[in-house]
Design a protein around this nucleic acid. Structure first.
Lengths: 149, 149
DNA sequence: AAAACAACGGATACCGATGTCTGTTGAAGG
DNA sequence: CCTTCAACAGACATCGGTATCCGTTGTTTT
């Protein structure tokens, strides 16, 4: 798999919260766990990372729960990855050579950079607004004359 | 990290073998482990996957060792990933919904597809010939007048 | 003030990926 | 034919990410 569990859980939780952002309401951990298919007793760990990273706002007690700290279009997936202690490790050489750099690259440097570059680029430019395009997508699909199906 | 250890080890080993392809000689597991910084007793696991996948040719006994089964430019990183039981899981929904598809997508479907797409595209089009460009790279750097450094 | 609620935080258990060890099989050289 | 070499194969140990549990803290309601 491309992401570890924690990072994938974070993606899902953020997707739910993004979809719920306009309502302004908070989502409780238990609900969130169910909606995002995250183990109920594990979600607190996942959310904690997102909270301390400042991406999610938490409130305790009656009526408490989680919601995005910013609008979805102001939160990139890169931030979510970083929050989930998923280090992109751009600088680490594939061979573990400390001295590996563009001028004195290890033999994997080129390919390795390309791979990381493509993921990082995606993560930096894609925001949580992308997940909300669902409604639009549905709307578009519905309004457009279906090809032939 | 982007890849699990086994997959990364496989990348490194293949890079070494690719660099050694022209010589036609085989590389013993012990050497390979040292060159690719793979735990000496773990490398047999890594290499076996590559062998059964038909990417690497193994020979036992005196003068034995490993070498690529095909020229580097005929082996894509996707094949290496597949061999390392790194399932790209294109079809799996990020939410675990069996019914998730382009016509009835989950809310992460778009973003998820993009991410996988970018990695898969890279892996499919990039071959082990890429790692050999090292020599060329060095040659180019040497021949070119350095910009200003 | 008390009770209910819900996130926080640490301690612990679990499990699969990773790493180690030992013996076996197959190939080449003497 | 025997020895040596080196990949193969499986059993076992280890480690870290994952998951569970439980008590604590802070907030709201009554």
């Amino acid at each position: 798999m491309l992401l570890n569990h924690t990072a994938e859980y974070a993606f899902r939780a953020m997707a739910i919260l993004a979809g719920n952002y306009d309502s302004g309401e908070r989502v409780r951990a238990k609900e969130l766990a169910e909606l995002a298919a995250i183990p109920e007793h594990y979600i607190s760990k996942v959310m904690r990372h997102l909270v301390v990273a400042g991406l999610v706002e938490a409130l305790r007690g009656h009526g408490g729960g989680f919601r995005l700290a910013r609008p979805p279009n102001a939160i990139t997936f890169m931030e979510v990855l970083d929050a989930s202690d998923w280090s992109s490790e751009d600088r680490r050489c594939a061979f573990g050579f400390g001295a590996c750099n563009p001028k004195n690259p290890c033999s994997l440097h080129n390919a390795w950079s390309q791979l990381h570059g493509c993921v990082n680029q995606w993560a930096k430019k894609t925001t949580l607004a992308e997940v909300r395009s669902l409604e639009h997508l549905h709307a578009e699909l519905a309004s457009q004359a279906p090809p032939k199906d």
